[in-house]
Simulated scan of single mutants.
Amino acid sequence: MTQIAGTIMPADIRGQIMRDPTSSSTLPSLVVRMLEDLQVEPESKVLEIGTGTGYSTAVLCARLGEEYVTSIEYDEEVASRARTALGRRGMYPTLVSSDGLLGYAEGAPYDRVIATCGVCTVPAAWIEQTRPGGLILTTIGGWLGSSELARLTVHNDGTATGLLLSGQVSFMLARPHTPPALGLLPDLSEGKEREAIIGTDALNDWTSRFVMQLAAPHAQHLTMERDGHTEHVLVDVESGSWAALYEKDGRWIVRQDGPNAPWDAVEEQLGRWHAAGTPALEEFTVSVTPQGQTITW
């Protein structure tokens, strides 16, 4: 971890760290793996989203030459440290301190776009700034904590499609894509109860949790003790919907309320996935159009 809570460096903290990390150094082997997945070729113009420490930026500069590399960092302090580190290596790519979700139109079009932060949906700006036939490599995830790398090819009509890759790769979500604070929880004693078809074991599996996110993209998960048992709660802050599951006499019971029924949607989506033979994430296809993003298998 190289930054916590948006302003704090780990070296500034004594004792247990209670705040969320906001920047980190990527495992070097993952940096290399991602650049191989990006299929970088000589003289490829690359836009990197998330400069971080500057390590992956340096590898790109060594591979391509600094004139082909543009890197964006959201946080000015993090960007400044990366700029200094790169300068010590004699590397001076185009470094921008800005919102990476907006890309960098001044340097477009790019042959490759690579993100070292996670997103829930691929930003339109990345597609618009990538030449037809170019590739976008990014981690797509959600608020239940499951994610995977996706490699998308940009088409002439302004759309992009591609498969998820393997590895259960996870990055911190881009700050505008992070979930809102839960705040005051709704009254979880209300709502309609029924026996659940699927229990909370699905939350413990990376792929099934990814499928759940497709059904309830704005749900956050928490556990709480209530009436002598543990309840697993999905809360959708935006709609005010929620679902609480608990085990009773060997059965799972779900209680839900709000305009949506999160666990109904989860069970329906997981049911379709099981009916298809529980395909692995590498069999999922991502499609991004002006109308939005879809992920299918």
Rank of each mutant, 00 (worst) to 15 (best):
L214M: 11
L184N: 12
S189E: 12
L222C: 01
L203C: 06
T200Y: 04
M212F: 08
D187P: 05
E190C: 10
T207C: 11
G228S: 09
A216R: 03
I197M: 10
Q213S: 07
D227N: 14
P186E: 12
A216G: 10
D201A: 14
P180M: 06
T200A: 13
N204L: 15
W206E: 15
T207Y: 08
I197R: 13
S189N: 14
V211L: 03
D205I: 09
L214F: 08
R194I: 09
P179H: 03
E190A: 13
Q220R: 08
M212H: 05
V211G: 00
M212N: 03
G199S: 06
P180D: 03
M224W: 12
A219S: 14
Q220W: 02
L182Q: 11
I198D: 02
G228K: 10
D227R: 13
P180T: 05
D201C: 11
D201V: 11
E193L: 14
W206K: 09
R226W: 07
L222W: 00
L185Q: 06
A181P: 11
V211Y: 00
L184Y: 09
L214D: 06
L188D: 01
A196D: 00
R226A: 04
M224L: 13
R209K: 07
S208K: 04
D205R: 12
L203I: 06
M212W: 04
L214K: 04
G183S: 06
L185Y: 05
A215N: 02
E193R: 09
R226I: 02
D187V: 08
S189R: 14
G228V: 09
A196H: 00
R226H: 08
D187E: 09
P217H: 05
G199L: 04
K192P: 04
K192W: 14
N204C: 10
T200W: 04
P179L: 02
D187G: 10
E193G: 12
P186W: 11
I198H: 02
R194A: 15
L182Y: 12
A202G: 00
N204K: 13
T200P: 05
W206M: 09
M224D: 11
M224Q: 13
A181M: 15
L214C: 08
F210A: 04
Q213Y: 01
A216W: 02
L222I: 05
G191N: 01
P186V: 08
M224C: 14
D201S: 13
W206C: 07
P180C: 05
G183T: 05
L184D: 13
A219H: 01
P217E: 07
D187F: 11
L214E: 08
T223L: 09
D227H: 11
N204F: 15
N204V: 14
L182G: 15
V211A: 01
N204S: 13
H221F: 07
G191T: 02
A202S: 06
P186S: 11
A219C: 14
A181N: 15
G228L: 10
A181C: 15
E225V: 04
